[in-house]
């Protein structure tokens, strides 16, 4: 389970640093899917970067643990090896590095950090083939450089492909629905739903309720000004859709 307590964090260097996360507390037990919704600038993406250890984001207070391990002191790759996975809002292009090479290098690096053996080439290829089929990804696409020349939808599907390949313990989906048409959204959601399991927790960050029609959350949290200001069941997402953040937050603040 992911446990965040009274977390505060800043973005930017020294004097320029700005506090974005302001005493955030949140628990996502294994097996549950929680959605985080909130207006622009609420700190949604910052939260995902703080949890995954991006440089430039500094934790100034509070704690965050994954299955009891303090993750805030770890390097990004150590967190990844512990099972933390972030599906990026804007997946990054890596020229000259084929998808398969990238994912296999990542997988073996994680395994090494965990003291496990490397995956054999045939096992890797078999697994990759099955997942690609499930996500309707063209095998040729996996031979191309990571995200280079991919459409928005392809990039998001590739994020899910990586997620399914790496089998993380905890997933953060950052605005995975942005830039997707309805068919791509369904495919992506199917992939995510296939990952649901009693051992795995998920944090789904989104602007819109639409994604939550396909990935049904156990809980919905509203993030505003760097804190969780409201928590409810799936119906909260519908209320936000109907009344807007102002309507719902007006009553919360």
């Amino acid at each position: 389970m992911l446990k965040i307590e009274n977390l505060t964090a800043t973005v930017g260097e020294a004097e320029e640093a700005k506090q974005i996360i302001n005493g955030l507390t949140l628990e996502v037990p294994a097996g549950e899917v929680h959605a985080i919704m909130g207006p622009n600038g609420a700190g949604k993406s910052t939260l995902s970067y703080v949890l995954t250890g991006r440089s430039g984001y500094e934790v100034t207070g509070g704690s965050a643990t994954l299955n009891g391990d303090d993750i805030l002191e770890m390097d990004p790759e150590e967190r990844a090896a512990k099972g933390m996975f972030l599906s990026f809002q804007y997946p990054v292009e890596i020229p000259g590095v084929p998808v398969m090479t990238f994912v296999r290098t990542a997988m073996n690096s994680q395994r090494k950090l965990r003291g496990e053996d490397e995956i054999s080439a045939p096992d890797f290829i078999k697994k990759s083939r099955e997942i690609a089929k499930q996500l309707k990804l063209d095998a040729e696409m996996l031979k191309r450089p990571v995200n280079v020349g991919f459409s928005g939808g392809e990039k998001k599907r590739l994020e899910i492909y990586q997620m399914m390949m790496l089998e993380p313990r905890f997933l953060i989906l950052d605005e995975t629905d942005s830039g997707l048409d309805i068919d791509a959204l369904k495919t992506v959601a199917e992939g995510v739903n296939a990952m649901r399991s009693p051992e795995r927790g998920m944090l789904v960050i989104t602007h819109y309720q639409r994604l939550l029609d396909y990935i049904k959350p156990d809980k919905v949290h509203v993030l505003a000004a760097g804190r969780i200001v409201k928590t409810g069941g799936p119906d909260l997402a519908h209320r936000l859709e109907a009344e807007g953040y102002d309507g719902v937050l007006g009553e919360a603040v």
Binding site: G53, E77, R79, T101
Partner: peptide, 22 residues
């Protein structure tokens, strides 16, 4: 790029090497 690679589990030096190889 570096962060993306590290989030997937590559160490910093390893990420640099991979990016450079690309």
């Amino acid at each position: 790029q570096l962060f993306y690679a590290r989030q997937r589990g590559l160490g910093e030096e390893q990420a640099v090497a991979l990016l450079v190889n690309g």
